[in-house]
Design a protein around this nucleic acid. Sequence first.
DNA 1: GATATAAGTGAGTAATCACTCACTTACCAA
DNA 2: TTGGTAAGTGAGTGATTACTCACTTATATC
Lengths: 228, 228
Amino acid sequence: MTEKDWEKWVRMIADEYDLDLGKTNKETLKQKKILEAAIHIFAEKGFSGSSTSEIAERAGVAEATIFKHYRTKKGLLLRLVIPAIAKVASPWITRSALKILEQDKPFRERVEDVILDRVLLIETNWKKIKIILVESLFHPELREAIQTHVAKSVFPVMSEKIKQLQAEGELRRDLPDYVLLRSVISMAIGYLLARNVFPEQLAQSEEKDEISMIAEVLLKGVGGSHGD
Amino acid sequence: MTEKDWEKWVRMIADEYDLDLGKTNKETLKQKKILEAAIHIFAEKGFSGSSTSEIAERAGVAEATIFKHYRTKKGLLLRLVIPAIAKVASPWITRSALKILEQDKPFRERVEDVILDRVLLIETNWKKIKIILVESLFHPELREAIQTHVAKSVFPVMSEKIKQLQAEGELRRDLPDYVLLRSVISMAIGYLLARNVFPEQLAQSEEKDEISMIAEVLLKGVGGSHGD
DNA sequence: GATATAAGTGAGTAATCACTCACTTACCAA
DNA sequence: TTGGTAAGTGAGTGATTACTCACTTATATC
């Protein structure tokens, strides 16, 4: 799937499920309520575990109203998920990270800033991200879309930046760029998981200090004096 | 929840759902087939997305047979999940990692060995782990059980080992032990996720080489010459 | 070989599911 | 004010769901 294929795919799915994707649209109050309720309930119970009647009740709307706007339950899911994926993969969301890395500060501080930025970004969109991650495990079309779209539009940009930082001597040159990229992402995601699942054991300090330590480990490693 | 509370909890759930937990039991061939089919289908479609009729069909068994042995659909889920959690948190599974760390080898090699060991362990039990992780998001009792059990019985052991390695000079002493533990886990999980979701972009080399690079990043960091 | 106990099943059942349809209500432009 | 269109709904529908029960079959012990 190339970038153009992605756009085609979005249009195709949008047609198939009569999605508006929130672009041209002026949404009704009730439509907003439905989307709000759906995010809450899908995140809490998963797609299969949620019922349209429950979503309707929480939104204060007749069940039929949901089907008026989104045709099927899966149409409702995709109306939530596809714009979110498109947003994650849009240029500006990558660009804001690049901007931070280009600021006039010590490299160490820039690394902390960019990690904090991404952590906050994920935290504020946590429910939607949870839905996307979980449902991508069970809906192959979704998984494939994320794979190809994120892989083809986000990674190359980040990869380029890393190569530049390697050339500038900020990052070591004896490891491939994808390993360095994966390491940064791993440490950030690992921190978020730890904070959510084992906060008392694995994330005991203030967020600011935790991120500072993440940057420290990332740049210098965990090895002690013996390894030198 | 203390360790004794955990045992109580297991017995309580076992009573509530009539679980045998595979300890005293001689399982029938059909029971094995049911468990096999359930693992496959729960992993593929999620708990809510799976139907008992489908599980029965795949196992080559009448639907009523499932309810004969496991009383409810959730009873079947717990029969899969609870022994797996108990196993993960059992002493020997932690001990095998500690054994590796105590071998008479350079520290760098021991780190590689232990990462490889855990990666293989997760890979061979991937379906069950997937079920546990996903369903713990939606069943609070499960989440709590994992949290307290793993947190209270696995982390302290690992934490102790890390402090010892810090004292020996193999790991740096200027960061708290939980940050070092979290870093190792993050890098391993990050690698597994990358291998599963973005293999072409984020896990391009042979497993052996990837793990060697993970150990390298972990011990020495990603920072370049500028940072020295 | 008789008997007791457990394993296994076919044919249900009530409840819930996603979804439809005929209909009413709200909105807006001419 | 009117007329056309979209928003919204109450009352359904057939299909599927987890689960039950009366019953048969297999197994093990004496």
